[in-house]
Amino acid sequence: MELVQDVAEDIEEANTDKVRLQQMIINLLSNAIKFTESGTITVTARSEKGNQSAATPTHDSRSPSEALAQEGPHDLRI
C-alpha cells in the first residue's frame, strides 16, 4: 500500500479552523489506511477556480454510504 501527496503548487492559504480540519483529514486517512487492502491512497489538495465568495465546497453527489458501499477506488472530497 502506498500513501501519496498531490498538492497543487499554486495552492492558496486556507481560512478555517486548522486543528479541526487536521483532525478530519487524519481521521479520514487513518480509516482509508485501515480499510484498504492494497493500492494507493492519494491526498489531493487544490484551489477551486473563481473568487473566494463564489467558491463552494465540492462534494461527492452520492450519499456517503452509497459511495463507501461500492467496490474499487473511492473518491471522498471535503
Binding site: Q5, V7, I11, E13, A14, T16, K18, Q22, I26
Partner: peptide, 14 residues
C-alpha cells in the same frame, strides 16, 4: 478560524 498554509498542513497529516 485562522489562515494557514494548506501544503504544510497536508504534509503534517500525511
Amino acid at each position: 478560524p485562522g489562515k494557514f498554509g494548506v501544503a504544510e498542513m497536508v504534509d503534517l497529516c500525511v
